[in-house]
Structures are given as structure tokens and as C-alpha cells.
């Protein structure tokens, strides 16, 4: 440890940066597969079923079996697709959610290191710019598949994601007006020193939450892949590992958007009692903070899964109506009100 801290700063950044990347990916990948597992079990329970319980104790090895199946299946490419884009699309769908995670502080400190891969001072701008890339994977998949249902799915996805990005982006503006900084670490510090932003900006939270569902194409906004009308939407023509990448991408997006919500509205890795709101000094404390972060994340993941069975799918026009004519004005109004309040209280 001593030797490490004595090393020069570039080497340290490279070394610890790489270490954190490896660690995050190592945690994230199982998390994705186990959230699939969780989804299957919770969905089953809501439908009075048991769900997968055969592979390993309590079916805990099911994700491994699923992964193996995806890997071992014939990697089939239909003849009528646009090959290059067809191969590119799943990769593109997978990348943005992972990039988002990079700027999110998932813990305080561990062994003197900030638990964030890239402590960017324009963190939230980076996040939004990366999230907006997510649409390309889907649109490309729809286009590359060269058949009507994927194409419909792709078009719907692009319209939906672009629409809600605006509402989403607008909804968080008041937050940064309050915090006065775009660095996500600072957002957490702000919340640790006062109340969580969910209490200060409930409207922003609701808009952000709903937009998050729309951004991740989850029910009740899963228009791009609605089975009842579009077969499987943009991944109709995909199978085996390429399909799995879309699947992973969707869950990674859920995780990253949940992490964003935890950071923005629920105080990130902090808890407002037992001194858990200050950066940890011990390794145990550091791990505890990461645990708190993951715990809060899981609540949102649970919400994502649960809502799937609570609400029926929106009609497409209702979705657009909600985004443009309800949430966007509300978010703008929220900005104005917050600005006024800040102006008055200053």
C-alpha cells in the first residue's frame, strides 16, 4: 500500500483506474445476470408460479446455465439482413450503459481511493451524452434486420428515447441549480449535508423515474419490443449471443439508470445516520458504503421488475403525449419555480 501511494500520480491513476474498471465490470456482469434471475423469480411469484429453481441450490446457477445456452447456441445470421450493421448493433446497444457507470460514485473511499472510475466535473453532461447513444444500437438493429417488425421497433425506440431524453434532461436541471455543480460526487456531498434531493425535488424525481422507464424500454413503455404487436421488436431477427448482448444491454441500462437515480435523488452511498454520510476512513466503512449503494440500487431494480406486472403497456400516442405535453412542460415549470425560489432565498 505504501509503495503504491508513493508511486507517481499518473501511474496511480492508471493502476487504480484499471483496478476499479475491472472491479466494476466484475460486479456489474453478475449483477446483470442475477437481476435477470431476480426478474424471472419475481415475475413468477407475481404470476403464482415458482420460476427457475432447478439449476443449483434454489436455482442460483440458472444465470450460468442461461449464459452457457446463449454461448452454445448456433450463431445464426439470417440471409436477408445487412450484415455489418447487424453485427454492430448488439455491441453498440451494450456499450452506453457501461460507460454511464464510469462517472457514478458507487462508494466513498476504499484504501484512500475515490470509489468512482472517472471523477468528471461534467459528470451529468457526460451521462446524458452517453445515454443518448443508447438509441443507436436499437435503431441500427431495426434497420439492419431488414424486416418490418424490427424496423417498426427501431423507429418507435428512436422516437421514444429522444422524446424522453428531453424530459429527463430537463427534470434534473433544478437539481444542479440547487447543487451548483455538475460533478456527481458533489451532488452526493450536497445531499449528505442536507436532505436528499428526492424530498427537495419530488416532481423532478417522478419525471426522472418515468423517463427512466421509457429510456430503458421497460414496461409500461416497452413499445419497441412489444410482443403483442411487433413479435419481438428490434431483436426479432436476433438469436444466440447477439440476442444476449441486447438482453445484457437492457439490464445494464436499468442498472445504470438506477445508479443515476440513487446518486441524484437518494444520496448515493450515504445514509443520514450513524455517521454514514461522511467518506469512510476504514476499509470496512468503504465496503459498507458500496453495500449501501448496491442496496439502494437493488430497490430501484426491484421497482423496475415489479412495475412490469403492475401496469399495462401504454399506447404509442399516449406515450408521446405523456412525454411532450405533460412531463416536458412540468419539468420546465419546475426549473422556473426552482429558479424563482433560489432567486428569492438568495
Amino acid at each position: 500500500m505504501e509503495a503504491l501511494s508513493e508511486a507517481n500520480s499518473i501511474q496511480a491513476i492508471l493502476l487504480f483506474g484499471l483496478l476499479k474498471v475491472v472491479m466494476v465490470v466484475a460486479v456489474l456482469m453478475p449483477m446483470i445476470s442475477y437481476s435477470v434471475m431476480a426478474e424471472r423469480r419475481i415475475s413468477a411469484a407475481i404470476q403464482d408460479r415458482i420460476g427457475p429453481n432447478r439449476v443449483g441450490p434454489f436455482g442460483l446457477l440458472q444465470p450460468i446455465a442461461d449464459g452457457l445456452k446463449f454461448l452454445l447456441k448456433e450463431d445464426f445470421t439470417p440471409n436477408h439482413v445487412r450484415k455489418a450493421y447487424f453485427w454492430l448493433a448488439p455491441a453498440i446497444a451494450m456499450v452506453p450503459p457501461f460507460l454511464t457507470i464510469a462517472v457514478i460514485p458507487f462508494g466513498s473511499t476504499l484504501g484512500g481511493q475515490n470509489m468512482v472510475i472517472a471523477n468528471l466535473n461534467v459528470g451529468i453532461l457526460f451521462t446524458f451524452s452517453v445515454v443518448s447513444l443508447g438509441v443507436y444500437g436499437i435503431v441500427l438493429a431495426g434497420y439492419a434486420s431488414n424486416s418490418k417488425y424490427p424496423f417498426f421497433g427501431g423507429i418507435r425506440a428512436s422516437a421514444q428515447m429522444i422524446s424522453y431524453e428531453i424530459a429527463m434532461g430537463m427534470s434534473v436541471v433544478p437539481l444542479f441549480m440547487l447543487v451548483g455543480d455538475l460533478n456527481l460526487g458533489k451532488v452526493i456531498e450536497y445531499q449528505a449535508s442536507g436532505a436528499w434531493l428526492i424530498f427537495k425535488q419530488p416532481l423532478a424525481f417522478i419525471i426522472f423515474l418515468v423517463a427512466a422507464f421509457a429510456e430503458t424500454n421497460r414496461l409500461p413503455f416497452d413499445m419497441p419490443e412489444s410482443e403483442t404487436e411487433l413479435v419481438s421488436g428490434y431483436h426479432t431477427e436476433y438469436s444466440s449471443m447477439k440476442f444476449a448482448l441486447f438482453f445484457l444491454g437492457e439490464y445494464a441500462a436499468m442498472i445504470s439508470v438506477s445508479a443515476l437515480m440513487v446518486t441524484l435523488f437518494l444520496g448515493g452511498w450515504t445514509l443520514p445516520f450513524m455517521g454514514l454520510d461522511t467518506p469512510a476512513t476504514t476499509i470496512l466503512g468503504g465496503l459498507l458504503h458500496i453495500g449501501i449503494f448496491v442496496g439502494k440500487l437493488s430497490i430501484f431494480m426491484g421497482l423496475f421488475i415489479w412495475v412490469r406486472w403492475m401496469l399495462p403497456r401504454f399506447r404509442y400516442d399516449q406515450l408521446m403525449d405523456l412525454g411532450w405535453r405533460r412531463f416536458l412542460p412540468l419539468a420546465l415549470l419546475n426549473i422556473v419555480i426552482t429558479a424563482c425560489l433560489l432567486w428569492i432565498t438568495r
Binding site: 419475481i42 413468477a44 411469484a45 407475481i46 404470476q47 403464482d48 408460479r49 415458482i50 415489479w306 406486472w309 403492475m310 401496469l311
Partner: peptide, 22 residues
């Protein structure tokens, strides 16, 4: 109201005895 009733239904079923046969 839709959210509430949706939540009620899902919670009720979540804790209900499962019908799956092993």
C-alpha cells in the same frame, strides 16, 4: 388509482400459494 390497484393485485399474488407442480 391504476398504479395503486396494480400494486394491490401484484402484491396479493406475490404472497399467494404457488400453483406450480414440481
Amino acid at each position: 388509482p391504476a398504479i395503486i390497484s396494480g400494486f394491490r393485485v401484484t402484491v396479493r399474488h406475490f404472497f399467494k400459494k404457488k400453483v406450480t407442480m414440481q
